[in-house]
Simulated scan of single mutants.
Amino acid sequence: MSAPQLPVELVERIISTAWHMPLSSDERISFMRSSMLVNSTWADTLDLVSSRDVYIPSSAFCDYFIQQLRAQAPAAATTSPSSFLSSFLRGANQPPKRTMRRRPANLACKSMTIQIANVMTHPDKHTHPRLPMGAVLDELLETLDARSLAPNLRRLTIEYLDAGFTDVFHRTGLAALPPQVTHLELRYAFSADTPVWLVEALREKQTRQRHIGWISKSITHLSVIGAGKNTVSDLLRACPRVQRFHGEGLKFK
């Protein structure tokens, strides 16, 4: 006797809660792959949630996501779009048959989150962090703007891990931030084993930026979590039309 099916509304609530948890890139990819193997309802619901609130866990996923946005742009949209998520994961596991119709990825995307992690052991004010996902963000934003993709994208969240506070001001991709993006959220976090004194020093000794490489007049909502007052002041300079601001203290992961 097979187990009873959960109501679709409950499945969506479970998946949405798990999807928006602060997962690492590896944890998120594992969750994506596992979800594709539960059943068609679970897989389809993950497609729905993940295409609306997109997380970019790797450069490979970003490349494939851009391909799907371009393929499913209005001029090339089909009446029965395939799941970009299941297609991306098909190399490892064959996903179940699709049972729900989905909006094209290009129209479904409303928010986007990317984690930029320092691959070095700990941040240091005397060394430059290595941030490979920063280049991924730049390419993604420049492509979205140049090709007028993701017209319903409204929120961009950048999660910095062990990365310090200056990188955001030099991200070339933010100069091409699509005009439809009105909400920008910056989250700064540090590994649990990072010395507290080092984190406090990085935060409190962060000076004002002499030069900011981008200005966005479309951002009206700004959220900054884990940064000091000088970083916040510089972000407000970069986003001069902010109407609502939210800020919180430092977080450790």
Results as ranks from 00 to 15, higher is better:
residue 1 M to Q: 07
residue 174 L to M: 13
residue 219 I to F: 04
residue 62 C to V: 07
residue 118 N to H: 11
residue 215 I to W: 03
residue 94 Q to M: 08
residue 202 L to M: 14
residue 26 D to E: 14
residue 110 K to G: 03
residue 110 K to C: 09
residue 118 N to T: 05
residue 31 F to K: 10
residue 137 L to H: 09
residue 86 S to P: 00
residue 77 A to C: 11
residue 250 L to N: 10
residue 119 V to H: 15
residue 107 L to C: 08
residue 126 H to T: 05
residue 222 L to D: 01
residue 208 R to M: 10
residue 189 A to K: 09
residue 49 V to C: 09
residue 62 C to T: 09
residue 83 S to A: 07
residue 236 L to P: 01
residue 216 S to P: 12
residue 16 S to A: 12
residue 94 Q to N: 07
residue 36 M to N: 05
residue 194 T to L: 08
residue 158 I to V: 15
residue 115 Q to N: 08
residue 188 Y to W: 08
residue 192 A to Q: 11
residue 207 T to M: 14
residue 121 T to R: 15
residue 75 A to R: 15
residue 165 F to G: 02
residue 242 V to G: 04
residue 181 V to R: 04
residue 186 L to R: 01
residue 102 R to C: 06
residue 178 P to E: 04
residue 202 L to S: 01
residue 104 P to M: 15
residue 233 S to R: 13
residue 235 L to Q: 04
residue 74 P to V: 02
residue 9 E to D: 15
residue 224 V to K: 01
residue 96 P to R: 15
residue 196 V to W: 14
residue 106 N to F: 12
residue 230 N to Q: 13
residue 20 H to V: 02
residue 216 S to M: 06
residue 42 W to Q: 07
residue 183 H to I: 01
residue 118 N to E: 02
residue 57 P to V: 05
residue 197 W to M: 08
residue 35 S to N: 08
residue 132 P to A: 09
residue 33 R to G: 00
residue 40 S to P: 03
residue 122 H to L: 14
residue 245 F to R: 07
residue 136 V to A: 05
residue 169 F to R: 04
residue 94 Q to T: 08
residue 142 E to T: 11
residue 53 D to A: 11
residue 82 S to H: 13
residue 106 N to T: 05
residue 122 H to C: 03
residue 197 W to V: 08
residue 5 Q to P: 02
residue 184 L to I: 03
residue 245 F to V: 03
residue 41 T to N: 12
residue 71 A to H: 13
residue 186 L to E: 01
residue 107 L to F: 14
residue 180 Q to V: 00
residue 56 I to H: 12
residue 122 H to T: 07
residue 198 L to Y: 03
residue 93 N to E: 02
residue 75 A to P: 03
residue 178 P to N: 06
residue 182 T to Q: 12
residue 113 T to R: 14
residue 241 R to S: 05
residue 70 R to A: 04
residue 65 F to L: 13
residue 112 M to P: 03
residue 14 I to L: 12
residue 70 R to E: 11
residue 81 P to H: 07
residue 97 K to S: 11
residue 192 A to M: 10
residue 48 L to R: 06
residue 161 L to Q: 07
residue 169 F to I: 00
residue 57 P to W: 08
residue 206 Q to F: 14
residue 42 W to P: 05
residue 196 V to A: 13
residue 149 L to K: 10
residue 121 T to D: 09
residue 240 P to C: 01
residue 193 D to G: 02
residue 203 R to T: 10
residue 221 H to C: 03
residue 252 F to C: 08
residue 239 C to T: 09
residue 52 R to W: 04
residue 74 P to E: 10
residue 47 D to M: 09
residue 165 F to S: 05
residue 98 R to G: 00
residue 25 S to T: 08
residue 42 W to M: 05
